[in-house]
Design a protein around this nucleic acid. Structure first.
Lengths: 351, 351
DNA sequence: AATTAGCACTCGATCATGATGAGTGCTAAT
DNA sequence: ATTAGCACTCATCATGATCGAGTGCTAATT
């Protein structure tokens, strides 16, 4: 809670702030427009409903509140939520039990990058009751740690790449009539020369160098190179894991099937998820409210994002999406904790 | 369309059959209880609404129709749908364009088993407008074609197995302090002895035999064996790909958020999907209607399943779930076509 | 004997009506 | 500056009237 002078934009009194806080808290609980009488009775501000009415009128004029219709109570505007989030919300501390659960599930040994992201998304969805999305670090920006070519069928070869942080990626290549012995020789040589290289930096130049070392298999390498180039290009997409969608249906704001479906369809499209990620800052936690998101489909939502880092560099994203009327303090603490844990796990920090 | 005598259970006239057909067709279109006048006007049966009323009363007595309330039209009962599906539906032939799209998307070279299943589910969902689930063949029952151990980090090794039909599976094993050279030796030896073996048949006996061949690395093999056994056990689950969930929300029957959510949550649980698969016959196409499914959560649904085969043996499943009021003829033709295409693709038949 | 026209009847859906009450804004008293 | 008081607004809800789609039954028709 802060004093009035800290609020920059417009003059707003301490008392108005308290009233705004009470209204938003109440609205988050009840989803009903909040009236002056409710505030004066439920919250010990020591002022009458009439005074509150006057202040509410002012708050509406300043743009922090809205009135659905003449004789209804007030609901927060996006600007009101913004003020609430910036100055009024106090971030919870996440409970010990929750920490335990998160640690044990995200630090399980046999976990793969995709499984890890999925698990993290599940935890987020469970603890927030909202939609959670976890984007994996771009594989592209990791360093190559290991590499194998494995024959799958007469016409297909599997390229397996492992980053130095232990993320695995498979790509199938259409290559016919080869045998595992040659594949082993080629992949060993490639690994010797490319190990430690950032994957997006593996270009034709470095691949061509390898060709010199593999004179015996020159033909095969000629054949492999264009296929490999295409395959590497395909890696610049980010993978997303979404969980908790069905929980939206229980939330008043989205109980209308059309609205729910609009959001479902929006989130199903990876390009849209990319937009969500792009719009969020790399460093700190970000909260966007309604129109601030800048996407029509999410006008009724708030989005909380956080970036997590792998070895201080490559980053993935953690996203929680819900109604504007969400428990920001709680969600922020969970997003923070899971985001930090992911940073640690992906960076190989074993606690 | 069949003659009256072919209908077993109870005496039902040819005319009653036609009326039933008309009622169900109309109900499938409109989702509204169908009245006698509607039938006599829309369908050229050459009989008056009064006669139809009498027949409808009989059909209700026989259990094929239901009346939501006294002065409403009739809707089909599960038994009515059953009769409709068994004797009245004529299966469409799938169009040339659709075939082209399906073939081109499912026969793309660079596709992996999971991607293939996902793609198939997407196609099903798109062409039916309903929920589609594709279960991958149990990896367990395929034959081993290739095998590699790849070092991922200091504490983890990736076990890659490829079936003779080209399905790939990764498992991460927690194994510390080893190097790629040893892993290569061990995996080569394992492959030599296990190639062609059905994966679920790889038991301790066959693994122990390998140990004899790897005396130099005895300690490592001792360490590996229990880990490997656990890993192989984890393979007997089936993986499912679900698509088209959000489309449910546009269907009248599921526009109630609670009903929709119940189905969403049901389908999210892999065990429940397993139940759906288990309950369906191995050979032909199966249609289950409402209570026939035997699962409370799906009382308002119909489920169409088909098994597809890999090399005539191992099988996956194709499932479409929608309201009882679905276009059976259309859905059946699509399920059949995609199921057959999957059989071919997984069996390596290249057309 | 089967079909159908006709009619009374049922009952959900729709709509206008009025009462209720939560909530407001304004004014005047404190 | 605060607040009590009051007229006013408007969503919500219950009521009742009306409408019409649909039925079942009976009697007339083929």
């Amino acid at each position: 809670m802060m004093s009035a002078n800290k609020v920059g934009e417009r003059m707003i009194s301490e008392r108005q702030l308290r009233i705004l806080e009470a209204i938003i808290s109440d609205f988050i609980d009840t989803a009903q427009p909040v009236g002056s009488r409710t505030i004066s009775k439920k919250y010990p501000l020591g002022i009458s409903s009439a005074t509150i009415r006057n202040e509410m009128a002012d708050l509406e004029e300043l743009g922090y509140l809205q009135q659905p219709h003449t004789s209804a109570g007030r609901i927060p505007s996006d600007l009101g939520y913004r003020l609430y989030v910036d100055s009024l919300v106090n971030v919870h501390t996440i409970g010990y039990e929750e920490k335990e659960v998160i640690q044990s599930l995200l630090r399980s040994r046999i976990i793969e990058a995709n499984d890890l992201a999925k698990q993290a998304a599940k935890l987020l969805a469970e603890f927030t009751g909202l939609v959670a999305i976890v984007a994996i670090p771009k594989f592209n920006k990791c360093k190559l740690g290991n590499l194998k070519l494995v024959k799958v069928s007469d016409s297909r070869v599997l390229l397996i790449m492992v980053t130095d942080t232990g993320i695995v990626k498979n790509i199938q290549l259409g290559i016919s009539n080869t045998d595992q012995f040659i594949l082993d020789r080629v992949s060993d040589t490639m690994l010797n020369h490319l190990s430690g290289e950032t994957i997006e930096n593996i270009d034709m130049r470095s691949i061509l160098k390898i060709k010199d070392k593999l004179l015996n298999y020159g033909d095969f390498v000629d054949y492999l190179i264009p296929i490999l180039r295409d395959a590497l290009k395909s890696l610049n997409g980010t993978e997303h894991h979404t969980e908790g969608l069905s929980q939206l249906l229980t939330i008043q704001e989205f109980s209308n099937p059309e609205k729910a479906r609009a959001i479902f369809d929006f989130l199903k499209n990876p390009e849209n998820l990319e937009k969500l990620v792009e719009g969020s800052p790399v460093n700190q936690l970000s909260i966007k409210i309604g129109s601030e998101i800048g996407l029509d489909a999410l006008d009724e939502c708030s989005v909380i994002t956080s970036a997590y880092k792998v070895d201080g560099k490559t980053d993935g994203r953690v996203i929680v999406l819900g109604p504007k009327r969400m428990d920001y303090g709680n969600v922020v603490s969970i997003v923070n904790y899971i985001s930090n844990t992911l940073s640690d796990v992906f960076s190989g920090i074993t606690l």
